[in-house]
Design a protein around this nucleic acid. Sequence first.
DNA 1: TTGTAGGCGTTATCAG
DNA 2: CTGATAACGCCTACAA
Lengths: 339, 339
Amino acid sequence: MSEKTTIYDIAKRLNITAATVSRALNNSAKISEATRKLVVDTAVEMNYKQNKLALALKSGKSYNVGVIVPYIDHNFFASVIRGIEEELNPKGYHVIICQTHEIEKKEIDTINTLLNAQVDGVIMSISKLSNETSHFKRVLDKNVPLIFFDRKKDIPGVSTVTINDFEAAYSATTHLIEQGCKRIAHISGDWALEIYKERFEGYKKALEDNGLEFEKEYVLQTKSNIESGHKAVDVLMKLEYQPDAIFSSGDYVALGAIQRLKELGVRIPEDFCVVGFSNEPFTRFMELPISSIDQVPLEMGQMAAKVFLEQQKNSGKVKIEQKVQLTSQLLIRKSSSKL
Amino acid sequence: MSEKTTIYDIAKRLNITAATVSRALNNSAKISEATRKLVVDTAVEMNYKQNKLALALKSGKSYNVGVIVPYIDHNFFASVIRGIEEELNPKGYHVIICQTHEIEKKEIDTINTLLNAQVDGVIMSISKLSNETSHFKRVLDKNVPLIFFDRKKDIPGVSTVTINDFEAAYSATTHLIEQGCKRIAHISGDWALEIYKERFEGYKKALEDNGLEFEKEYVLQTKSNIESGHKAVDVLMKLEYQPDAIFSSGDYVALGAIQRLKELGVRIPEDFCVVGFSNEPFTRFMELPISSIDQVPLEMGQMAAKVFLEQQKNSGKVKIEQKVQLTSQLLIRKSSSKL
DNA sequence: TTGTAGGCGTTATCAG
DNA sequence: CTGATAACGCCTACAA
């Protein structure tokens, strides 16, 4: 029972040739209805299953797509992957997951082994410290579609799917201003990543457009964790002119900030407002729900998959990279609702 | 540049045969150091990369493992997958992710396509409503290792990796009793899943062992979401003898319960204690952190991967299924800390 | 030490 | 409509 049956087995049984079996099974070409049915029936009977590996070798298409993320168990990435999988699976593709742990060497290794595995495409969010770009070139040279999502890098031939980080930050900051906040601090991430740079720019522009002074002291760059939120507040509240609001580029930092502010006896949102970024699940569950920006990860995944499928279809023709920008959503919750 | 170079290309360039190239690259067999170096050098120069598909077809090993879960973006599953990936990747395996959405048909389809894709193993958590088992048999018949984690089902030949659900529930309940709770309710899930059944049994046994009456009214079966927690509390608090604690088989239900209890003005933990299950990230971030049971998902994933590797190694020999039980951890937080 | 030949399971191209 | 044959890229007896 455990032996695999091939089209040869079917052919032998029917005293025909494997080629005919193949044709019958793919009900293509010209083939008599009689033998077609005969073949299909015995195929079922013999429990025949097509070996996709052989097909892949022959056709050069593995129907596998590599997805590379820093960590798969970060909510945002998991959701994106979900979107990718749900879009690609019905089209017959499988999704191979790889993690880089934010380590560039792993990113490079991963890309190499995925290429060796003959994936039909690579969808990824780059590692923080990427300096090298030759591994990306290698993907493109093999004519394999490469798509960046969220964390992008401007490389010719690479498609990107992102949200409007600038505008998202702009609207979050504007929202804080509308709440009456005058001294809005911004906690950012590593500017080596474009997304953090753009969020900062959006924040700055919103201040300018509303006639608020941009204060360098109000901008901090930290890691994305709770501890950083604690420290950031410690720094900010020691300033001569204490801020009355924080727009954070990450939810964990926002959470940490809130925790420390409460310890200091600051009332939120009455005296201090906070907005985070990412719409992590916990932001909505808190007793004090945290305002945040939803990055629409599911749509992002679906869109990245669609872009891949598009590129796939047009392979051979000139391949034009796509730059898709999705619209994020500011979710106003209690942490920033004075009014 | 975009053309792939094969061992034939190298052979031609060097006026030797592909077989020799193959041997040199695998630096196996007897081969002169001279030609070995020559081959390796030109391989690098020509940017040769082994085509794993061809290898897979030839050897019958794809070095791909299928992982099937209900949803990839549920924290628990994402963490398990992370564990699997981190264990398997260094061994040269890739992980193919599939989601069932709790739908049995998708589970069956997924298994079929994974088998067609010639995966070397399947690691999965079954869908809630699985009645059929023939698709599992099909995996075993193909001599492909099959491993269940968390949600298991007793099938000969299938290895399982789970936590000690019974004991976890027992210790959670005991903890509540130690806090002085006398009327402990239990919110469970669908008993078609063994895990929920066992958690219930553990709860019941703990009551008995401590001389507390088991009250049928105190046990509810619900879905795993916040809304269910609301409803459950509504039901429980209408009883003549209201409970003074809840042990929930899920964190979302526990959260919902807490929300509703607060609305009703019940003080937690002073007058009412709550313990959840799963250690979802949010349980620890709440202003009122929720006690819960950590299912050690990372270890679970690693262990599942190890079991697979073990089975893989012993393929051919008699394959003995492994039943691994990991030790979970009760995390006592404020929601159940009276003392 | 190296070359030859065959096969892994399919499909595609040509004849017939 | 169907049968041969070759090819996808690699490995591995067997022969030289």
